[in-house]
Design a protein around this nucleic acid. Structure first.
Lengths: 274, 274
DNA sequence: TCGCGTCTGTTCACTAGTGCACTTATAGGC
DNA sequence: GCCTATAAGTGCACTAGTGAACAGACGCGA
């Protein structure tokens, strides 16, 4: 359950707490001198679920760093009005101009999926800092590559895997990032993100419930057996996680602060998020 | 039909013809001083269909610039051994370390789909040149953003659109890039790239044939009515093309050398490729 | 504690797509 | 000009997923 700090969108002026920065893995991975370089430009930032950070075509002025249990989705709008999720970003990453490296019209919509708080800074400030620091540039290029890998895998996944596999994958991915087995999401929202019919998702969830994988409440689910859930999912998540580990090994901190996520049977749900 | 220059993989030592460089839009978009900066490092390069440029995990040392009718696919390998196409690159772009900006293990396989020739250079040389030139860096960041948009759209497309729409889209995208209505591809290959069954693709192609959209030969198709084909496709291609135009407007050359692609009814098949 | 909006569960008829098996066509090499 | 490998076409039984419709049921606000 998202903690009570999820208030309406707001942002403190500047020089946000060093504490807050450690709640985002990309920022925590910064060398002290790089952190010192950008810290004065970071401001704290919070948003409710459903908040649209930017729309397609918008000039994206900020880079956003979700922290804690906050999740942001990239959503591509189709001609028929549907919006399909193409990527899910949590405290392991950042949103806004990561690939384009500055101000270009956004292609997707970015929307807050799970509420929470984080940090943000002007893209122009980040770009300026990247010009001064090779290590900073390197870290963000590595993260961009990982994000790209995630999107690549999603293309293949959507072409090849069943709706049950994809739904299970989504839930595991969300829990890995938030560190919370409680998923505040209606079935309607999940169906819409996957680009599939609501009634079928309902059946899939029902079947997971009957197998004891999760509990259903109105507007939220609670995952009871994440190991089984991950086994029912396709391996797309695992492949992407592996790429993150390889590319960011030695850059991301390796500490095991797995947020109490370890299950009895040893499934390491928070490897990427940790 | 790919022209006879498609010989076995080979590469001339250096300082490749300035001519060849104009056959790739990214290189043609370079300012004269930027072109002069990298030209000495460009070498010409050719490959047959099926040539694997790199495999997942490989250290990608070169950036490849397809020219003319050459096409390169990104293919993500699934756990079950299938490989699904996630992106298609032709003379409008480049392959290799575009997003990661240097040497990182590749996530996908890159494979030559249609044979031909082009240019390539060491990633390290390109990165060095980008450090020296803001305009060069800017051009490649813009292209990276466009490639990202293409992949984003593919995620949504695979989630939402029918196989007929996706097959039609693929054919239009290929023709836009090559400038040739002849598509040297077996139905098996097309099915595999889309991640779907071969027998169903056969039925889709059959239906297109009956509607007079294309002719079928063994191992190749010839598109007769690309306007109708594009109408049967989803609009994903159009959306991506629009983003290319917006982001690379004023950077890409705007001349209309549409390679004889204009149809009687005015469908501009080569807008992006031109 | 009541009422109501919205989320969930389920049925039903239907369409899209699968996977296999088998036949038929075709080009290209000798 | 024939042979053969391989690609294309097709029938069939089957499964996955759709979309509309409607009946509860949950929980929040007054």
């Amino acid at each position: 359950m998202p903690n009570a700090e999820s208030l309406a969108a707001a942002s403190k002026p500047a020089g946000a707490d060093a504490d807050e920065a450690t709640r985002n893995n990309l920022l925590r991975a910064l060398r002290p001198d790089d952190l010192a370089r950008i810290a004065p430009r970071l401001q704290s930032w919070a948003a409710d679920a459903g908040t649209v950070i930017y729309e397609p075509g918008d000039d994206v002025r900020f880079v956003y760093f979700p922290a804690g249990a906050m999740l942001v989705s990239f959503v591509v709008l189709l001609d028929d009005g549907r919006g399909v999720e193409t990527g899910l970003i949590g405290r392991e990453g950042a949103v806004g101009g990561i690939v384009s490296q500055g101000r270009l019209p956004a292609y997707s919509r970015a929307v807050v999926q799970f509420p929470g708080s984080g940090l943000r800074m002007l893209s122009s400030d980040l770009e300026a800092a990247k010009l001064e620091s090779l290590t900073l540039r390197n870290l963000f290029a590595r993260y961009a590559d990982c994000m790209m890998a995630q999107i690549f895998q999603a293309v293949a996944c959507n072409a090849a895997h069943s709706i049950e596999q994809r739904a299970a994958k989504w839930l595991v991915a969300a829990i890995e990032r938030t560190g919370d087995h409680d998923v505040p999401l209606t079935q309607e929202q999940l169906a819409s993100m996957l680009g599939v019919g609501r009634s079928y998702i309902s059946r899939v969830i029902q079947s997971l419930k009957l197998r004891g994988v999760l509990e259903v409440r109105r507007g939220r689910m609670r995952v009871r057996d994440i190991a089984l859930l991950n086994a029912l999912a396709c391996s797309c998540n695992d492949l992407v996680r592996h790429h993150f580990e390889e590319v960011l090994r030695g850059v991301y901190p390796t500490e095991q602060e797995s947020a109490g996520l370890k299950d009895e049977d040893g499934f390491e749900a928070a490897r990427m998020a940790s």
